[in-house]
Nucleic acid binder design. Structure first.
Lengths: 220, 220, 220, 220
DNA sequence: TATGAATGAGTCTTCATTCAT
DNA sequence: GATGAATGAAGACTCATTCAT
């Protein structure tokens, strides 16, 4: 474990790279896909657009890295929750809440990561390929959770794993989109008593899990 | 009162207009928001870009029409279902199924209609203004349904109307996005036993409604 | 002199042609060079743009005819005045007033006739060619008048004919331009006592002639 | 305080900027308002159209600068003359000559500055607003001169200040137009004895002033 | 005869990208 | 390593013009 494998020059390089990515993320978050231009990113860190090309081979490259890092965060967050091995019901809710939180904290980023910005990916054609994808990995977390829920008797036994996972995913995805594109949707302030962001997150996480649970009559 | 009130010329015009809209929809579906350009649309129907302007005064105009027609279809479908005044539980499921069907039949159109494409709308600032919007009208159907469900004792009484409606909306929205952007998601064929489109729709509609219902232990 | 040489069909054709020219003139007068488009002209007479091409081979053709007709009017007006053979002083002033009137009544047209709109003319290179030009003919009227004035002892003998004529022309030309492009220049209403259009015309005609006349101490 | 405060880079930038402006002026001169396009300007200096936008934010911006610089030159020249406070008669002639010289040296520029090119300005509605305009300032010089001439007994007392100034302006304007658009007008060489440019200028300046002066029988 | 349909060239403008310095 | 200069491709849009009907 030699730290000196990373030369100071390399360190600097990585620092700048990170700064560029942060700037890109900020711009993207603030202005959405349409506003994500090399110039805007460069302005954000007081660099010239040309400089960015020392760190990324193209805009597409930069965006790919951005997505990759986003998925890293998403998967990291979610796995950390899962690994705590709490009782299933709480774990499932916390896991959903993890997804939801990330989705609504960086809605543009979330949407971008799963969606276009680049018409990349070229849709991996077989299931195996999909599983090795970031999207696939993020999806696996959901299918695993659904499987476990069904097998453990928490979720309704007649549920189809894959489609159920899709539904869960769709709910989260939809929240992100909604928030990303409809800032004041029907204004939050209109809620009775108001709702903190944490409450908002838990509320939606709970709804998602509930749609899968056996009808116990005792819930929540 | 003859149908021939519409001259052949007019008919042709409408046909071309329709073709342009279809092309626009297709382009949007294939290439996303970023790829929706007049030139691409024109190429799609082997026209010159200039020709488009004989049918639409601007790109914005075209997009508006696209959205408007979509909302017409959506609201028409949904209201027709609601107006049948079936028992609540069935009605709620059928209504959800209506939304879901439209969402997955024309997922890109659905996403486009609710999303950017144009940074128009400028988010109507007050609630009243929002209600007079197409988005608002589509949302109202959901809030009304949630209200009725709660008041009728079908849905959990502690639910907050607006946020619950948001959640419902998000689920539908997310399905559309998922299908729109992840064509081969985990391929449908991989589902155990397979599932027809109708089953798929009902499955998701059911999940949505279930997340709101009282835990009766009797349902479905 | 057979009237029947002009068939009814031909007559109609000429009538429409005239209507198009009138429309073009109106459009040009109202909107200037920038606004003179085939579509605008066609709209003015409720025709389709395509129809115009039955009467004129191109926009340039139309504009040429427009200029031609303008020069016809200008030269007609001016010659009519000249031919009355009044005493020189009055005749010179009336002649100038004729130019000025036409210049300020249709300033855009005037400017267009002498100027661009089309980068045509290709500047006839020798003097003879110029004289056979409409511009040349209009200019000749001025040189003739200056010559006569000098020879008759009305204008200062040291004046150079051609350059003097240029100056006269420039004054008229400038008035047209000023009016064409500076609608409310320094607002007319600011004049002491106001000034009718006729007075305005005479005022300027008088100034022009005065600049050429011998200093008699008796003038006007 | 060194001249080298302007870096070589900056110098180059200014040089290119100047080249663009010169090109624009040339294009305008050769092809008139209608032909003044970014592409043409770029072609003139063998640049790509996009390059122009590194130096000017828009075509309007470029044109504004063109006008502004022209007015700077015009007003500078004229004020310098006026401030010398020579006896009125000489001063008036020299001032007119100043106008005329600028008008005929860069006739297209002159015409452009006072004319459309851009339908901007929106004709400032009241007199005060007009006075704060470049056009207004240039016009004020003339009204002031006319006023002084009348009050000082040099010009005919019955003259209306504003309209007289208009006439003067028109004469100058017309000269510029004439030269700008009729290159070979009646070729200068055809003048008896010929006339240098300086003589040409003085000749016209003299004509202008004479049209305003009292008929003294002594003048010139 | 008149027109609706369609187009190609051209308008201004933006943006990712390269390259010499 | 960073940048200013420059560009080519593309974007929305306009307009004179042709052609089949």
């Amino acid at each position: 474990m030699q730290d000196s494998e990373i030369s100071p020059a390399e360190r600097r390089r990585l620092r700048v790279r990170g700064a560029i990515l942060d700037a890109a993320e900020k711009v993207f978050a603030e202005e959405g896909e349409a506003g994500l231009s090399i110039r805007r990113i460069a302005d954000e860190i007081d660099y010239s657009p040309a400089a960015i090309y020392k760190y990324f081979s193209s805009k597409d490259d930069l965006v790919d890295v951005l997505k990759e890092s986003f998925f890293g965060r998403l998967l990291g967050t979610v796995h950390e929750i899962i690994d705590r091995r709490e009782p299933f019901s709480a774990r499932a809710r916390r896991c959903m809440a993890g997804y939801v939180r990330i989705a609504i904290e960086k809605p543009h980023h979330y949407v971008a990561a799963f969606t276009g910005v680049r018409a990349d990916d070229e849709a991996p054609s077989d299931a195996q390929a999909f599983d090795d994808t970031n999207k696939g990995r993020a999806f696996s977390v959901l299918t695993d959770m659904v499987s476990e829920g069904i097998e453990g008797g928490h979720f309704r036994p007649e549920l189809d794993t894959v489609n159920t996972a899709k539904s869960v995913w769709a709910s989260i995805h939809g929240l992100a989109m909604m928030i990303a594109h409809l800032p004041d949707f029907p204004a939050t302030a209109s809620m009775p008593g108001g709702m903190s962001q944490a409450e908002f997150i838990d509320f939606h996480a709970d709804l998602i899990v509930r749609s899968l649970e056996k009808q116990s009559g005792v819930a929540a």
